[in-house]
């Protein structure tokens, strides 16, 4: 019965081919440093999941943001756990993505034919940092308010278009309800959407080219 059902699905979906190319692909000899990309992927999924959970109670408006987070921490069972994972996972993800990039650099894995994998990776690093920047404002406490004031002001120092960039980030010349809601939109829709799309391209390229072998003395 199960075998039949599996056969039926297999004929139409090609599951075992998918399995072979995704999980059973040949790998060169490597070490633990090669797991950091997968670790980044895991952290991305974890942040996605805990982030979705947080939006169940979080409210992105200046009069409720702070209180709703206070409520998550003290009023909802395991709220501290969900927020804790999301909070520490954010820093960990930046760290892990960065070390992943360092390993790719050290093993010279960015060379032909993997230049695009590297470029897409640069996009992934920037988006990960963007997630950190936009997420930091959401608790709407003193620290996040002033960090964002400073962060957006730095963007404002760019020559000629600085003022415009700052206004676009803040949704006006000052930090306001508009800043909070556009940071929220960026943090839960725009940046994760782009991140997911680029991760898809990144993984496609990795599977297409296979992983690079570490260079040896002859290289």
């Amino acid at each position: 019965m199960w075998r039949k059902l599996y056969q039926w699905l297999e004929e139409r979906l090609g599951l075992s081919d998918l399995y072979k190319s995704l999980l059973d692909r040949p790998e060169p000899k490597g070490n633990w440093w090669n797991t950091l990309g997968s670790a980044s992927l895991f952290l991305f999924l974890m942040q996605g999941l805990t982030g979705i959970f947080l939006t169940v109670y979080y409210t992105p408006s200046p009069d409720h943001a702070y209180d709703s987070i206070q409520y998550i921490m003290t009023g909802v069972r395991f709220g501290w756990l969900i927020r804790g994972i999301h909070h520490w996972g954010a820093s960990l993800m930046v760290l892990v993505v960065f070390i992943h990039m360092l390993r790719v650099f050290v093993t010279a894995s960015y060379k032909y034919p993997r230049e695009l994998t590297w470029l897409v990776g640069v996009g992934l690093l920037l988006l990960t940092l963007g997630m950190g920047f936009t997420g930091y404002l959401l608790p709407w406490n003193q620290k996040s308010y002033w960090a964002t004031t400073v962060g957006t002001a730095i963007a404002g120092t760019a020559p000629f278009i600085g003022e415009f960039i700052m206004k676009a980030l803040r949704g006006g010349s000052d930090l306001s309800a508009l800043t909070l809601s556009r940071f929220f939109a960026a943090h839960i829709w725009i940046l994760p959407g782009l991140l997911a799309a680029l991760i898809g391209v990144h993984l496609y390229l990795i599977i297409k080219h296979g992983e690079s072998a570490f260079p040896d003395k002859d290289d």
């Binding site: 959970f53 909802v76 069972r77 395991f78 709220g79």
Partner: peptide, 12 residues
């Protein structure tokens, strides 16, 4: 399990 409790908390 904590995740489920978190989601259903107001009902519990």
């Amino acid at each position: 399990i904590p995740g489920l409790v978190y989601l259903l908390d107001p009902a519990l």
